Amino acid sequence: MDIDTESTATSLDENTENFCDNPTRDTIAEGLMGLIKPTVDQLDERVRATRLSQVELRQCIEGLSEELKRISEDQKHSIDLEVYLKKLINAKQRVTVLSNILQSAQERLNRVHMSIDKETVKRKVLLNNTIEDPHSVVLSKNIGSSMSLQTPLYNLNDFPDVYEPSEDTHLFIDALEKDMKYIINSKPTLACEIGCGSGVLIAALAKILKSTCCYFCTDINPKACIATTRTAKMNKVPLECTRMDLTTNLKCKFDIVLFNPPYVLTEELEIFGCGLNRAFAGGLRGRSVTDRLLNNLNDILSDNGVCYLLLLKENNIGEIGEKMGEKGFKIKLVIQRKIPGEHLFVYKFSKA
Rank of each mutant, 00 (worst) to 15 (best):
K207Y: 11
K253R: 15
E56S: 10
Y263L: 05
K323E: 03
A279T: 02
Q42K: 10
L310I: 11
E56A: 10
D26K: 07
L35R: 09
I28T: 09
F259N: 05
Q336Y: 05
D174E: 08
A203L: 08
V83H: 15
N128H: 07
I271Q: 09
E267D: 13
C217S: 12
P23K: 09
M1G: 03
L57V: 00
E193R: 04
S140T: 05
G286R: 10
R70D: 13
S99N: 12
K251H: 13
R94Y: 09
K313T: 00
A206P: 06
T130H: 15
Q150N: 10
M147Y: 14
C252Q: 10
Q106D: 04
L309H: 08
R58K: 06
S186M: 10
T189G: 15
T231V: 02
T212G: 14
L43Q: 08
C241K: 05
T96N: 15
L205D: 02
G328R: 03
I28A: 12
S53P: 00
A203T: 02
K118T: 04
Q42G: 12
T248Y: 15
E119L: 13
T189Q: 15
C252T: 04
G325N: 12
K92S: 11
K338L: 04
V47K: 14
L344M: 12
Q106M: 09
L258V: 00
S11T: 11
P152D: 01
I271F: 03
S65T: 06
T218D: 12
A206V: 00
K348E: 11
D4G: 03
A105Y: 01
D41K: 15
C196D: 04
L310M: 14
I3N: 05
L301N: 12
T151I: 09
G341H: 13
P38F: 05
T96Q: 15
K76G: 09
Y347V: 07
L239Q: 01
F280C: 08
H170D: 08
K253C: 13
S104P: 01
K92Y: 14
K223S: 14
Q54H: 09
S53E: 09
L52N: 07
G144N: 13
T5F: 12
D179C: 06
T247M: 15
E322Y: 08
K207H: 14
L98Y: 03
K223W: 06
Y154L: 01
N100S: 10
N129F: 12
R25T: 00
A91S: 11
